[in-house]
Deep mutational scan, measured.
Amino acid sequence: SLSVDNKKFWATVESSEHSFEVPIYAETLDEALELAEWQYVPAGFEVTRVRPCVAP
């Protein structure tokens, strides 16, 4: 099958004044980091952490 098993990760994104967490959907932690950097670094943010979303 061609289905992709995307998992939810939380990326911590920082600017000079703010820090916030955004959801990233990817297959692996490395891919989540790449996606977060691709989305947020060009906008002037720094991705400081990516972690798996742990269900309660």
Score class of each variant (00 low, 15 high):
residue 36 A to K: 01
residue 8 K to D: 03
residue 24 I to S: 00
residue 48 T to Y: 00
residue 10 W to Y: 08
residue 25 Y to K: 03
residue 11 A to F: 06
residue 2 L to W: 08
residue 20 F to E: 02
residue 20 F to P: 00
residue 22 V to P: 00
residue 48 T to H: 03
residue 1 S to P: 10
residue 5 D to L: 14
residue 31 E to C: 06
residue 4 V to Q: 11
residue 20 F to S: 02
residue 53 C to F: 05
residue 26 A to D: 00
residue 52 P to H: 08
residue 5 D to Q: 14
residue 54 V to Y: 11
residue 42 P to A: 12
residue 39 Q to E: 12
residue 52 P to I: 12
residue 7 K to N: 07
residue 55 A to H: 11
residue 55 A to G: 12
residue 44 G to P: 00
residue 53 C to W: 05
residue 17 E to H: 14
residue 41 V to A: 12
residue 49 R to A: 14
residue 23 P to R: 05
residue 51 R to Q: 06
residue 30 D to Y: 10
residue 55 A to S: 12
residue 26 A to R: 02
residue 6 N to I: 15
residue 3 S to K: 13
residue 29 L to F: 06
residue 39 Q to G: 05
residue 46 E to V: 13
residue 34 E to P: 01
residue 6 N to L: 15
residue 7 K to Y: 07
residue 16 S to Q: 10
residue 11 A to K: 00
residue 34 E to C: 12
residue 11 A to E: 01
residue 13 V to K: 00
residue 16 S to Y: 08
residue 39 Q to D: 05
residue 6 N to D: 06
residue 48 T to G: 03
residue 29 L to M: 09
residue 1 S to Y: 08
residue 38 W to N: 15
residue 51 R to A: 06
residue 8 K to Y: 13
residue 23 P to E: 13
residue 56 P to M: 10
residue 46 E to G: 04
residue 44 G to F: 02
residue 22 V to Q: 02
residue 8 K to W: 15
residue 23 P to L: 15
residue 30 D to F: 09
residue 28 T to Q: 03
residue 54 V to L: 13
residue 46 E to K: 12
residue 11 A to T: 02
residue 56 P to A: 11
residue 35 L to M: 08
residue 19 S to N: 05
residue 5 D to I: 14
residue 39 Q to M: 15
residue 19 S to V: 11
residue 30 D to M: 12
residue 36 A to D: 01
residue 19 S to F: 07
residue 23 P to I: 15
residue 8 K to M: 15
residue 28 T to N: 09
residue 28 T to D: 06
residue 53 C to Y: 05
residue 46 E to P: 03
residue 36 A to S: 03
residue 43 A to M: 15
residue 8 K to F: 13
residue 10 W to R: 02
residue 42 P to C: 08
residue 14 E to Y: 08
residue 17 E to G: 13
residue 48 T to E: 03
residue 9 F to I: 00
residue 4 V to S: 10
residue 36 A to T: 03
residue 20 F to G: 01
residue 18 H to L: 14
residue 37 E to M: 12
residue 34 E to N: 09
residue 34 E to K: 15
residue 47 V to A: 02
residue 24 I to F: 04
residue 26 A to E: 01
residue 30 D to A: 13
residue 16 S to D: 08
residue 3 S to P: 12
residue 15 S to P: 01
residue 2 L to I: 13
residue 44 G to Y: 02
residue 25 Y to D: 04
residue 19 S to R: 12
residue 19 S to P: 02
residue 42 P to F: 07
residue 29 L to G: 04
residue 41 V to G: 15
residue 13 V to A: 01
residue 5 D to M: 14
residue 52 P to F: 08
residue 21 E to T: 07
residue 1 S to L: 09
residue 33 L to N: 04
residue 56 P to H: 11
residue 16 S to G: 14
residue 12 T to K: 06
residue 14 E to R: 13
residue 8 K to Q: 07
residue 40 Y to T: 05
residue 56 P to G: 11
residue 35 L to W: 06
residue 40 Y to Q: 04
residue 3 S to T: 09
residue 8 K to E: 06
residue 30 D to I: 10
residue 1 S to W: 08
residue 49 R to N: 14
residue 15 S to M: 07
residue 26 A to K: 02
residue 27 E to V: 11
residue 37 E to C: 08
residue 45 F to E: 03
residue 53 C to I: 05
residue 25 Y to Q: 04
residue 51 R to S: 06
residue 3 S to Y: 08
residue 38 W to G: 14
residue 54 V to I: 12
residue 8 K to P: 05
residue 49 R to G: 14
residue 50 V to Y: 01
